[in-house]
Design a protein around this nucleic acid. Sequence first.
DNA 1: CAGCAATGTTTACAACCGTAGTCGTAGTGA
DNA 2: TCACTACGACTACGGTTGTAAACATTGCTG
Lengths: 129, 129
Amino acid sequence: MNTPEEPIGERITEAELAVMDVLWERPRQTAAEVCEAVCTRRGWSLATVKTLLARLVQKGAISAAPDGRRFLYTPLIARAAYVGGESRRLVDRLFGGRAASLVAHLAESEALSEDDLAEIEALLKELRP
Amino acid sequence: MNTPEEPIGERITEAELAVMDVLWERPRQTAAEVCEAVCTRRGWSLATVKTLLARLVQKGAISAAPDGRRFLYTPLIARAAYVGGESRRLVDRLFGGRAASLVAHLAESEALSEDDLAEIEALLKELRP
DNA sequence: CAGCAATGTTTACAACCGTAGTCGTAGTGA
DNA sequence: TCACTACGACTACGGTTGTAAACATTGCTG
């Protein structure tokens, strides 16, 4: 069994997501390492990263494993689970829960390229033998 | 022509969205009418609706047309435009801008019912003759 | 005409968010 | 050993959001 979920309840914010992305990319990083990965891109200071890490720990989204005097942070929720939750939220809020409406919207608004359509078509074929 | 957009810049929040939905359903309503439509469902008081309407006017998301002593509120942005913007935001944030990835995810995570799949399939047929 | 009812405007206030500085403590190099 | 540094914890602070009460104005009804 390996579906690490726990819907977490607590919402992850935009800034926190940037941190999560770093940890999903590579787990078990220190605050300094995380900062190295995002601070310049987002214009943050190390202090900011530390705060975000602390809040994520509080929310139960990541764990902090002691390693000497510092901590190694690791996601407790899988990226797929988070992404799934957010997607569902959007579909619920904006499309009355009908995922097909979302796809329809994307298609109509030209948000789907020819390649996208082909990809989806292939996907469907696979899903419906 | 007739694509009432203006990306609006200002983000519409969850609570505000409930109000927008009422106005998208039927434009030109008074605060009291909007309240009638959402207050019980959301457990709000009229005061709350008034605040949200004021904030939406501030953000340029709706207009307030004087009608005697009160105002009739009307959306300034089309629902489709808002929904499109939010969808794109999600796709960008979570799927690196690849809409097909979103569809793939929905499919894989069983978020798509048999009916959804059929609907999407029909849509695709229509889009790719 | 005098209150009452309806309506928008102002103000409130706690929780949350983005962003960051300061403090305390515990290793570390000289 | 002793100053220094790396690190997490605590504190801060302005802005936004959710939720609403207080206030002001104005039309209506008795």
